[in-house]
């Protein structure tokens, strides 16, 4: 077992967007499709005004609501903690888009390229993987991580604000970092933040709470619906049996 996770040290983040750019370069996503974002937060009055940057992305939840609602099993949680989307299985039903509390998923339906009417060899390569009408999101750069490399956003962060690793490995560097810097876990997810002094913690992504419609749908409507259909079928079968038995009398 493993639990891959990421620390975002906001004290070190300079808001340079190298993570956003390197993510697009590594993953070859379409124009307008970003798997990670950087949000700017400001507080205080001059001369004590402060500013910080909060990078966000797929949180790789412990119990991902997106996986729970996926009708095909395209979205799944790997043993190493990564939440993935199998593009071959995805039918683009958007259930997961509604279910994700962090808005981390995106479905690209528009066939747009970087240059009008032209497609670069780089794009050709990227778009072969990232088809239209399937759901995409951050994969922790699974293609790199499974080869022992770090995610592109981690490698390319000039401030070294991103720390990636396995929480369950012996001598886990990320675990040490979390302890030393008192990183806060967004509960229920694989993401940690080191907040700068004075930041209202409510600005960070909230701890994982399954949206109410997901619980209602999966835990109430599914069993109730099956029961209703079952009762109707049993009533009809019972009527059929009794009526044909009486006919024979």
């Amino acid at each position: 077992m493993a639990r891959l996770a990421m620390v975002l040290d906001l004290k070190k983040c300079a808001g340079c967007y190298a993570c956003v750019v390197s993510c697009k370069m590594e993953n070859g996503t379409r124009p307008g499709v970003n798997w990670n974002q950087v949000r700017t937060v400001e507080w205080g009055e001059y001369p004590g005004a402060r500013q910080t940057f909060i990078p966000t992305q797929c949180m790789h939840c412990d119990n991902p609501p997106c996986v729970k609602v996926c009708p095909t099993g395209a979205s799944s949680k790997r043993d190493d903690g990564i939440v993935t989307v199998d593009y071959d299985k995805c039918i683009g039903c958007r259930y997961c888009l509604s279910a994700c509390p962090y808005g981390a998923r995106i479905i690209n339906e528009r066939d747009i390229t970087n240059f009008d009417g032209k497609i670069t060899p780089y794009e050709e390569e990227g778009y072969r993987v990232h088809r239209l009408n399937v759901v995409e999101k951050c994969t922790f750069c699974i293609q790199r991580v499974t080869k022992g490399k770090l995610p592109a956003c981690v490698v390319n962060c000039p401030g070294k604000a991103r720390i990636f690793g396995d929480l369950e490995a012996p001598d886990s560097a990320i675990k040490k970092y979390i302890e030393e810097h008192q990183a806060l876990n967004v509960k229920g997810t694989g993401i940690y933040y080191v907040p700068p002094e004075g930041l209202d913690l409510a600005q960070l992504p909230p701890e994982l709470r399954e949206p109410a419609f997901v619980s209602w749908w999966q835990d109430v409507v599914h069993p109730v619906g099956k029961t209703i259909l079952g009762i109707a079928a049993v009533a009809v079968a019972g009527s059929l049996v009794i009526n044909s038995a009486r006919k024979g009398e």
């Binding site: 259930y95 209602w216 409507v221 599914h222 109730v224 619906g225």
Partner: peptide, 10 residues
């Protein structure tokens, strides 16, 4: 989604 599913089974 849940309402549509429940309506369908009823």
């Amino acid at each position: 989604r849940p309402v549509h599913s429940l309506g369908a089974t009823v």
